[in-house]
Simulated scan of single mutants.
Amino acid sequence: MRLMNQMIKIIKAILITIGVLFILAILFISLLEYEIVYKVSDIGESISPNQLYKVEFQKVGQSVGFGNQSSQLVLSKDKNKISTVEFDIANDGKKVTENDWKTEWFKNRVEVILSGEEQNDVLVILYFDGSTDTKHLNTKYGKEIPQVKKEKLTERQNESTYESKTEDYTYIYQIEEGYLAIYNDLYESTFSKYEVVYGASMRSSRCILYEK
């Protein structure tokens, strides 16, 4: 009988432990889901010149890997929400910051330009009457796309030139080291009766021995 009671207690303890671990796992998964999918974090805000309107730039959740960052713009007046525009920013998985948006206020609206490393600029217009509009621009961080491509091409060419020069220097150094090794070997050996004639240029790999 005692053995049976002990077994029952052990089984109860195991079931309670499993139940607690299950609840903790559910809480952890729920918290992780909230952080990745639902949590709203402020990135920046801008207030109209007359101090009546405010637009907030917020991210929703967290980008996973190199995925897009879910974000939103919220226009409000006296803490009363007027409109919300949701969108994704393609920023190569990097953190979205205040550098990724610009605002300009007008009499009846606010215009917001959103930028990302892997997208063209997007113009979002939020009118004070609650209507919104979105336009895709031919710019990237305020620069015309052809200019951006030209700058990237120049950057790649500079990198290519640097790598090419580095390879040339390495190649020349290896040839010089080879010449020096041959010279030292002949100079210190009994075959000093031979004369060493190298190639016409430093890039030449020819090395000819002539008998004196």
Score class of each variant (00 low, 15 high):
Arg156Trp: 08
Gly65Asn: 05
Met4Asp: 07
Gly178Cys: 05
Tyr162Ile: 11
Leu137Arg: 10
Ser41Ala: 03
Phe22His: 05
Glu56Thr: 12
Asp100Phe: 02
Thr84Cys: 08
Lys54Ile: 12
Lys59Gln: 08
Tyr198Ala: 12
Tyr34Thr: 14
Ile23Asp: 00
Ile26Met: 13
Asp78Tyr: 06
Ser160Gly: 06
Leu209His: 01
Leu15Ala: 10
Leu75Thr: 10
Gln157Arg: 14
Trp105Ile: 14
Asp121Met: 04
Gln62Ile: 07
Trp101Pro: 00
Thr166Arg: 15
Gln62Lys: 14
Arg203Lys: 13
Asp42Asn: 04
Glu111Phe: 00
Met7Trp: 14
Trp105Pro: 12
Val20Met: 00
Gly67Arg: 02
Leu114Arg: 00
Leu137Ser: 07
Thr97Asp: 03
Leu32His: 07
Glu98Trp: 03
Leu126Asn: 12
Gln72Lys: 12
Asp168Met: 14
Asn120Lys: 15
Thr166Ala: 13
Leu24Ile: 10
Ala25Phe: 15
Ser164Phe: 13
Tyr162Asp: 06
Gln119Tyr: 04
Val112Cys: 06
Lys107Asp: 09
Thr154Tyr: 06
Glu56Ala: 11
Gln6Ser: 13
Tyr38Met: 04
Glu167Arg: 13
Ser76Leu: 03
Asn184Ile: 09
Gln72Asn: 05
Ser71Val: 00
Lys54Leu: 12
Gly142Arg: 10
